[in-house]
């Protein structure tokens, strides 16, 4: 299970993921999506992956749903600080073609 922390700074919503981000985390991530879709005046969203050790296909799927939600809300989205296996998986999944991957 992943630890998910959500903070808002000025107009940016920051989602920090750590540990293992898998399909099992759907409940808390759905809450984030619902919250995002309700619209709180944020113009951008960043997902910090610095402390994320593992992501499965369900996790990738949830990031894609987050992307859809951001597009719907006209929010910029970026995936930050991915490294190691997570970065490799993002690379294999060609997420750099879908997201702004930073760091």
């Amino acid at each position: 299970m992943s630890k998910v922390e959500v903070t808002t700074q000025s107009n940016t919503k920051k989602i920090a993921l750590s540990g293992h981000f898998t399909a099992m985390d759907h409940d808390q991530f759905r809450g984030i999506l619902d919250d995002l879709q309700s619209g709180q005046g944020c113009t951008s969203c960043t997902v910090d992956l610095e402390h994320l050790d593992f992501i499965d296909s369900g996790g990738l799927g949830m990031l894609l749903l987050l992307r859809d939600a951001c597009i719907k809300q006209k929010m910029a989205l970026s995936l930050n600080n991915a490294k190691g296996d997570v970065l490799r998986i993002l690379d294999i999944a060609k997420f750099d073609q879908l997201f702004k991957v930073v760091g």
Binding site: A23, H26, R30, L33, S57, G58, L60, G61, M62, L64, L65, A93
Partner: peptide, 14 residues
Amino acid sequence: LNIFYSKEAMNLVF
């Protein structure tokens, strides 16, 4: 296709 199924599976779960 794998990515698409992963996304749609999670979508359906939600």
